[in-house]
Simulated scan of single mutants.
Amino acid sequence: MCLIASSSAVAAAFPPKPLISPPPPPSNDQNHKLRRFRINIFRREAIAVSFLALVPSLHQPSPAIAFSIGISGPKDWLREQKKKSSRFVLAPIDASRNTLRAAYLLLTKGDSDYGDKDLEEVQRLLRSATMDCVPQERNSFVTFQAKTGVEVCTFRLVVKNASSLLDDNDPIKLEAEASLRDLVRSFTSLNAVANDTDIQLPSSRQKVADALMDTISSLNKFEQGVMDCLEI
């Protein structure tokens, strides 16, 4: 026998599930708090981005900023230090010039009685003035140093020091190196004349004195080249 259940019985056996009501809309106070929360997050992100953008400039100021507050690069600082110590760089040149002048006074003192001691003193002064830049006038120890690769020419060291901040092809550096070669040739010629001349003859002494003055002129030109490298 088939039983047909009534609608009321079915409803009782399977009651309908209650509907879930949506959450109530946030109040004005909640909206205000949410808006403040979002604003705070935005401000923190903006501050972080601004700080990251600022950090590189703390380590490497732009040229405009560096110029405005007087910051110079290391090369400019080294150039200024070289200028301040220029008298020490130029000291060997001045010492050589004074030695040449002493030799000139000895050659032109006017006495007719010149002996071997006078010749030896003139030659000693001329060797000293070359600052070990003429190979023929170096002593054995200096010659040994040169053969081992040590730079013994004082004038060459002066040029290297003065032009260390210049490029190899810089015209100022090239001019200083050219004046150094002229100076070495002048010293070589002067020493050859002094060694091969009978200093007891007034005319021979005058010949050596003239060559000596030419060497002083070359030395002055060399000094100017070094000063140009130092920008003084």
Rank of each mutant, 00 (worst) to 15 (best):
P25D: 06
P61D: 09
E45G: 12
R87C: 10
K117I: 04
D214V: 03
D170I: 05
S57V: 08
E120P: 00
D170N: 08
A146L: 09
M227A: 05
S27G: 12
P135V: 10
K147S: 03
R124Y: 05
V158E: 02
A162L: 04
Y104I: 11
I69A: 04
T154S: 02
V184I: 15
V150H: 04
A53R: 11
K147V: 00
L58G: 13
S140G: 02
D210C: 03
A9G: 02
I47G: 03
R35A: 15
I216P: 01
K75F: 09
R101P: 01
I65W: 05
L52R: 08
S189V: 10
D113F: 07
N139D: 14
F67S: 06
N195L: 15
V49G: 07
C229S: 03
A95Q: 09
I232T: 05
T130Y: 07
L165E: 09
S179L: 05
A209N: 13
L174F: 03
Q200H: 10
T99F: 02
L183A: 05
L190A: 07
I71P: 05
Q145T: 01
S62R: 13
S189E: 11
K33A: 15
P56M: 13
V208T: 12
V134W: 02
A178Q: 09
P171H: 03
V55F: 13
R127H: 09
S128G: 07
A194L: 09
G115H: 04
L107E: 03
H32N: 12
I71N: 08
I216H: 00
A11H: 11
E80A: 10
R124D: 01
A9W: 11
E137H: 02
Q60I: 07
T154W: 02
G115Y: 06
